[in-house]
Design a binder for these strands. Structure first.
Lengths: 243, 243
DNA sequence: GAACCGCCTTGATCTGGATCAAGGATCTGC
DNA sequence: GCAGATCCTTGATCCAGATCAAGGCGGTTC
C-alpha cells in the first residue's frame, strides 16, 4: 500500500549536493525550518531524509507508534480519522510546506495518505525531539504553528456546526485558495487533488450533496468546474457565501 | 459586565501567605504550573494576580488585544466564537485547572465568559512570555497541552461532522464526566454549569433538540435530570451511544 | 475495442433535526 | 406575593440534506 519509492535499495537518500539541501529547499520559508539559522539548518539536514510516496501511499496510520515527523516538500496529503464503525472524517489536507507531527504524540491520532505523488522531509522523532529540546526558538516556532492550527480547528468546528452545505463548500474553496496563495501558487484554476468523497468527509456532507452544490455554483457561474479542479469566477459571491 | 471583584480598591491582590500561594494552589498539579520547580513557581507567583469574576462576567472578548493569560482556579467558563451574522458557536468549556491563552496570539480568537463565580490566576502576557522564553520546559509543557487541545479539537470535529443528536449529547456528557474525574471531582451527579443553549451551540444543535434528547435519555433511564445537572445512570448505554 | 472500475453526476424519496409556537418552571427584584 | 425575565420543555410542521437508485464518463487492461 504505502510505497517509499525513494531509496528502494535501502540506501539513505540524505539530501545531496545534486538535489539541493535544506538551504535551497523551496518550502523552507513557509515551514518550521524558517526558524533556523544556517548552522542549525545543516544540523537539521543531517537528521532528515527525503522520502517519496505514490498516490494512495500511507505516510503513517492512526494508532501506529509515531516514529517520525514530516515536512511536505511536494504534493498533497489527506489527514483522516476513523470511527470504530467505519465512518471516517477527513480532518484536513496537508499541502507543500505543511508540517505533520506538530504535537509529537506517542501515537498518531490520524492517518495520513498521499493524494498525489508526494515527497517529504522525514525526521526521526527521537532525533527531532532532541534537536527541539536544544533549540528553544524552534520549539517556539512549533508552538506558534500549533496555535495557528488550533485557530484553524476552531474555524472548522464553527463551519461544521453552524453552516449549511453551500456555505461549507464555498468556504472550503476559499480556504484552499488562501492556502495556495500563501505558498505562492496563484494559478487561475484551483487544483483539487482530493476527490468529492474526501471533500464531503471533510465538510460533514455526503458526496451527492457536494457534487450537487458544486454543480449549482457552476450553473450559477460562481465557479467553473474543470478537470482536476475548479476556477473561481465570482469571488465576491463566494465570499458572501463562505465568509 | 465583567467584574473583577478582586482588589476593588485598585490594590494588587498578589497571593499572600494568608490565602496560600502557588505552592499550595490546588490546581497546580493539573495545570501548566506542574512543569515548574519551586523556585520558578515563586517567580511565576510574582507575576500572577488572583482575579474573581461574577457569573456572566467576561474574562476577555474576541478580537480584543490579548493582554494576559489565565489559569482557572475556581468555576467554569464558556469559550465562544461569533459569526458576523450573530450565529455563535461554543468552542468549549474551561474548567478548574484549564489554561486560557495557550497559543498566546496577539488578539483573542474567542470570547471567554464566566458561567459561575470564577477565580483565575491572571498573568500579564508580556511577563509570561518572557518567563516562557527563559524556561524551555515550561514552553515544552505548553506545547504538549496545545497538542492535547488539538486532539480534542479533532474529536470535536468528528463529533460535529459525523454524528447524530443522541450520539452528540451522550458523548458530551461522557467527555465532561471524564474531565471532572481528571480534576478529582467524582460526584454522583454531573454538574452542568452551562445552559441548554450553550450545550446546543457547542454540539451544533438547537436548544429544542438538546432538551428533547435529554428528556428521552431520562425517560429511557440512561440519565436522570436533576436541578443543575444530570446523574449518569447507565454508563454502558451512554458509551455505546457516544463512544 | 470491449469489459471493467473508480469516480462523478443526477433524480426520486425519506427523515432527523430545524423551525415555529405555546406553555411551564425558576428566579429576581420590588 | 406578584410582575417580569429567563430558561426549559413539549407539540406541530417543515425542509435541507441524507439515502436510495441509476446512469455517465474517463482511465486501464487484455
Amino acid at each position: 500500500m504505502s510505497s517509499e519509492t525513494c531509496a528502494p535499495n535501502g540506501q539513505s537518500c540524505r539530501h545531496g549536493r545534486s538535489e539541493g539541501g535544506c538551504a535551497e529547499c523551496k518550502v523552507r520559508l513557509v515551514s518550521v525550518c524558517a526558524a533556523l539559522t544556517s548552522d542549525e539548518l545543516a544540523e537539521l539536514e543531517s537528521l532528515s531524509r527525503r522520502v517519496a510516496y505514490n498516490p494512495r501511499g500511507t505516510l503513517f496510520a492512526q494508532d501506529e507508534e509515531a516514529s517520525a515527523v514530516y515536512n511536505i516538500t511536494e504534493g498533497a496529503v489527506r489527514l483522516l480519522r476513523l470511527l470504530p464503525d467505519g465512518r471516517r472524517h477527513v480532518m484536513g489536507f496537508a499541502l507543500v510546506g505543511d508540517f505533520l507531527g506538530l504535537a509529537m504524540p506517542e501515537r498518531h491520532t490520524i492517518t495520513a495518505e498521499a493524494l498525489s505523488p508526494v515527497t517529504v522531509c522525514r525526521f526521526e522523532r527521537r532525533a527531532f525531539q532532541e534537536l527541539v529540546a536544544r533549540k528553544p526558538h524552534l520549539l517556539q516556532r512549533l508552538h506558534e504553528r500549533a496555535g495557528y492550527e488550533l485557530g484553524l480547528a476552531q474555524d472548522q468546528m464553527l463551519l461544521l456546526g453552524r453552516r449549511g452545505a453551500e456555505e461549507k463548500v464555498a468556504s472550503f474553496l476559499l480556504t484552499l485558495r488562501g492556502r495556495y496563495v500563501r505558498i505562492g501558487l496563484t494559478s487561475v484554476t484551483l487544483e483539487l487533488p482530493m476527490g468529492r468523497q474526501d471533500i464531503a468527509d471533510h465538510l460533514g456532507l455526503t458526496v451527492e450533496t457536494v457534487s450537487r452544490t458544486l454543480t449549482r455554483l457552476d450553473r450559477e457561474k460562481a465557479i467553473l468546474i474543470v478537470p482536476g479542479g475548479v476556477r473561481l469566477l465570482d469571488l465576491p459571491r463566494l465570499e458572501r457565501l463562505g465568509g
